[in-house]
């Protein structure tokens, strides 16, 4: 599983960024690679079985326990 994720990452990263090399390409390229890396590190963590923090649960805790708003 993890190899599939890494292979997909490498393919998308190298093939996908090719059309970006025009004038002043670095901004597009940096955004492209950063986001792709974030996404694929999340996928890698899941492939390795590491529990990724849940945004949904984060919202629950933030609203209910910290801000004390929400329906019971």
């Amino acid at each position: 599983m993890i190899y599939v994720v890494i292979a997909a990452y490498l393919i998308i990263a190298f093939v996908g960024c090719r059309p970006l090399f025009k004038k002043k390409w670095w901004a597009e390229f940096a955004a492209y690679l950063t986001l792709l890396t974030i996404g694929f590190s999340l996928l890698t963590m899941q492939a390795l079985g590491i529990r990724v923090p849940s945004i949904g649960q984060g919202i629950q805790i933030l609203m209910m326990d910290v801000l004390h708003i929400g329906y019971h």
Partner: peptide, 20 residues
């Protein structure tokens, strides 16, 4: 357009862990 695929990667990365 350069952002379309990277955001897809982020969305995919989050879709399972967003709610257990």
């Amino acid at each position: 357009k350069p952002l379309v695929i990277p955001i897809a990667a982020v969305v995919l990365g989050l879709v399972v862990p967003i709610f257990y």
